[in-house]
């Protein structure tokens, strides 16, 4: 079972994507299944470490939090753009210490931070377990560190580690 289906979630989502784009029929179901299983097995040959989601309820909470933050930071960045470059707050770099180690968790955190307007992930320093961010409105550095440490990191730790 695990040899034939190394990534069940990936296989299922590939199949669903195939059916969504091509229409549901017996032929496409067969073709999509073959392609999805083949792609998942290729993936297994590429990356041996397998991400494991421990708690699905935390995933739902994370998605909700990220959505709220997306809307809030859209408004904040929109205001900054309207005010123009001569406003008081200044953009700047920020170094954040991280307790996360799991590669998938780091990748998810990177996507969340970069997709949110106002913060951009630049570099993860694996030797020091720190993260280099660029923040559009720096203000209080501790506020941004708290946002990552208290809002995202505990949830990601719960989900992946």
């Amino acid at each position: 079972m695990t040899r034939w289906l190394p990534y069940p979630v990936l296989t299922a989502s590939l199949l669903v994507m195939w059916l969504l784009l091509n229409g549901v029929s017996a032929g496409h179901l067969l073709l999509g299944t073959v392609l999805a299983i083949g792609a998942a097995r290729t993936m297994a040959a590429l990356q041996p470490s397998k991400p494991r989601v421990r708690r699905w309820d935390s995933v739902v909470r994370l998605v909700a939090i990220v959505f709220v933050d997306l809307v809030r930071s859209n408004i904040a960045v929109g205001r900054i753009i309207i005010e123009g470059p001569d406003r008081p707050g200044q953009p700047g770099f920020l170094v954040v210490p991280l307790a996360l180690n799991d590669r998938t968790a780091l990748a998810v955190l990177a996507c969340i931070l970069t997709a949110t307007p106002g913060t951009a992930w630049l570099e993860y320093r694996s030797r020091r377990d720190t993260l280099l961010l660029h923040v559009l409105d720096l203000g209080e550095e501790q506020d941004w560190i708290d946002l990552i440490k208290k809002r995202y990191e505990p949830l990601l730790l719960e989900i992946f580690e």
Binding site: G78, I81, P85, H134
Partner: peptide, 29 residues
């Protein structure tokens, strides 16, 4: 309108790193 705001940010921001934040408005909301 949100996409346009992001594009205006791309024009108005002064440094590259500040501009990096502007297109995310268009790609999210």
């Amino acid at each position: 309108a949100v996409t346009l705001l992001g594009a205006i940010g791309l024009v108005r921001m002064r440094t590259f790193y500040a501009r990096l934040h502007a297109p995310t408005l268009g790609t999210t909301l």
